[in-house]
Design a binder for these strands. Structure first.
Lengths: 400, 400
DNA sequence: GGGCTTATGTCGACGGTCAAGCAAAAGCCA
DNA sequence: TGGCTTTTGCTTGACCGTCGACATAAGCCC
């Protein structure tokens, strides 16, 4: 019965979480500035600030601003108070990292790890590798506040379970978060790999952009969407599946999904490699296409640029529908330089209405192959550093 | 300086708004049930409830549940405590209404009113008509808590100003909300007409659906989008502009926007009327097409069904991208019965991936030509009955 | 009508927040 | 080095919101 008051919206509102969310931008501030920003009395502010200092989530900075009198100590978000475990699991390849609370990578690893070995072998390896990475950067498991994982297939984000994944045998409805939480002792969050890449890129531009589309062009084609600063996952978590939108004048091309004329079958990295191979070039996967382009191979360059145009056709429709202010192009094939982007821009800017394109940027991924792990970390941070969660954590220690 | 505490996140948190948002579903509840739902003590709950009773936003209901002892009085949201003024201004036609707090229409009017007469004449007429409608349903201007208006062009929702509207001469950057607020003494909110129709339809299904697309098929074609229960307006407020997406194999059809092959030029009501007229039928606007279809005119039926297919082609892409759980078809042309829907469904269900379509409904508008005024009312209610707004209103009265 | 059950209003107690005041700390400047 | 300015920490008293408990009200059932 005392619990019901704790659960209720009343309770001892610590408000430390609100304070932290102000400081999360990293800028150091004095007590006076913080009291002004929060509207609290200085005494109250000190109380809240002490709570965050106790948790080491905030730390005093060295720079004292000379003001004629006693210089005010400034306080800033302490990025290194905790660490986050982040993993981006692809079909054949895995990338994992330990990051701090501002998504800075502290230790990193990249390895071949086929997802089709099944959940238990892959996740066991993951836990082991995380322990090694923690050792590398000299942090203990006690410093770790959460785990974020991206998987190459549809994931029901609320439960973190893969649902009917086409290329992940044995993973269907496997309770990934529970499995990881039990072994690592912290909350685990799971989402689709394209979604977390979108989240990572969004993080980099969040102050300027609220509606963004991240397009991943690898073997296949998919995209992640942010609307109003939040990830749009759709009704079945299947939003962003643009790889199987039909593009005109390719009705004869058969896609692995069974339909014909899908964007992925026309402009995906796998399709490009197959087409170049048929023309006598040495290419089996999308990375090989990138290699050919970098080597100046003319058929490859032409193919990539044309792929950009086909993707641009679909994105032109998407821009009219969604009106984003930024499209980010990522994935393996995006590393083929400007050729792909040029093709995309060529079509999008000519096909959409001026109102929708006049302030639209189409850019290459800033984070490159780190977009996934960054996004996985962001996903954890949004959960762990949310005001309510911080309030609860503070209460659990002080009021316990 | 005492104001800073009022502005600050601290302040006297009345919480009456949170209580009202529970009761807004209309179901009557006892004090005990409400205390349970909010987690507050009964004494606190009575305090909050009294505040809402004073504002007449909540009223006791008659039905006392016999429980062996003293029967508990039940309380319910008082829909008729205030009224809302709602207007749906089209290019040539205007529809306005007075509604209660549950969007029930109390008085209604429909009239020819060309938008190109300019903002001052149109809005002056609007204010006058609102006063007459208020008289019709026996309510005074003091009962009115807000005004909602839909306009046939792009609107910057934050400021309520039309921006570069193609068909509203004189309205560009006109401060509609300020103009109306000054004359009617309540907050005014303005948005695009398609957005408010989407909001109206969303209101009807909000308990089951969070991601919805509302497609308006009239003279032109446009759509409104809800993501996670919130309207997605896009970066320039131009989201949903699907009328100018290019559809394949119509590259020779010229659109009024200057491009070719636009969906609107192929499947819009204006285009259908023109095509039927060229074939010797008597049709000049989209309503005439509906008339012909209802009369059993075979070319008109075929044209409408084919238009449904073309729209379906675009929606199939949109479904793959956005993964909504509901598509609602509205606008004049939607009243041509099942022919249009059949065409849309035919294409969407065959072109999109099963994961995205297995739980997708494609339905005709429930609200019909009342979608706009309902949505305008919803827009106002979301603003006026938001917890924070209710708290402020309660404080202003009780706390002087 | 009397006893029973349940609902509702009132009152004192508790705890969190604020404002003000004071002493100490920490640099600046003469 | 000593006075000045400004920040900071601490304490006190007051205020307000919330809670729990008690007393009262209101109908039901025998």
């Amino acid at each position: 019965m005392s619990e019901s008051t704790l659960m209720g919206s009343g309770g001892p509102a610590t408000g430390a979480g609100a304070l932290l969310s102000i400081l999360r931008d990293g800028r150091p501030r004095t007590r006076a500035e913080l009291a002004e920003l929060t509207g609290w009395a200085r005494s109250t502010l000190s109380l809240r600030l002490d709570a965050l200092l106790n948790q080491r989530l905030v730390a005093p900075t060295d720079d004292a601003i000379p003001s004629g009198g006693r210089p005010a100590t400034t306080f800033a978000f302490n990025q290194s108070a905790r660490v986050v475990l982040a993993a981006d699991l692809g079909v054949t390849h895995a990338r994992l990292a330990v990051t701090d609370l501002a998504t800075t990578v502290l230790a990193e690893r990249s390895a071949e790890m086929p997802i089709d070995r099944g959940p238990v072998p892959v996740l066991t390896w993951l836990v082991e590798s995380f322990h090694e990475l923690l050792g590398e950067c000299g942090r203990g498991i006690a410093d770790m506040c959460g785990i974020g994982v991206g998987l190459p297939g549809p994931v029901e984000h609320d439960t973190g379970k893969p649902v009917n994944p086409p290329i992940m045998p044995g993973w269907d409805r496997f309770a990934v978060p529970e499995w990881l939480s039990a072994r690592l002792g912290a909350p685990a969050l799971v989402d689709n790999d394209v979604n977390i890449m979108a989240l990572g890129e969004y993080w980099a531009v969040r102050s300027q952009v609220k509606h963004m589309i991240f397009v991943k062009i690898g073997t296949g084609v998919g995209c992640g969407i942010t609307s109003g600063g939040r990830l749009h996952r759709g009704a079945q978590g299947a939003a962003g599946d643009i790889g199987h939108i039909r593009v005109p004048s390719f009705e004869d091309v058969v896609c692995r999904c069974g339909n014909t004329g899908c964007l992925e079958a026309v402009a995906g990295g796998g399709a490009l490699a197959a087409r170049l191979r048929a023309a006598g070039e040495d290419a089996s996967v999308s990375r090989d296409v990138v290699g050919l382009v970098r080597a100046g191979n003319v058929p490859a360059i032409q193919a990539v640029r044309q792929a950009g145009r086909e993707i641009g056709t679909v994105l032109a429709s998407v821009v009219s529908f969604f009106n984003p202010s930024l499209i980010v192009i990522g994935g393996d094939l995006a590393e083929a330089g400007e050729h792909l982007l040029a093709g995309v821009r060529e079509v999008v800017y000519s096909r959409s209405l001026p109102l929708a394109t006049q302030h639209l940027d189409i850019l290459a991924s800033e984070l490159g192959d780190r977009a996934g792990i960054t996004g996985a970390a962001v996903m954890v941070l949004e959960h762990v550093l949310a005001p309510d969660a911080v309030d609860q954590a503070v209460m659990a220690v002080s009021g316990g």
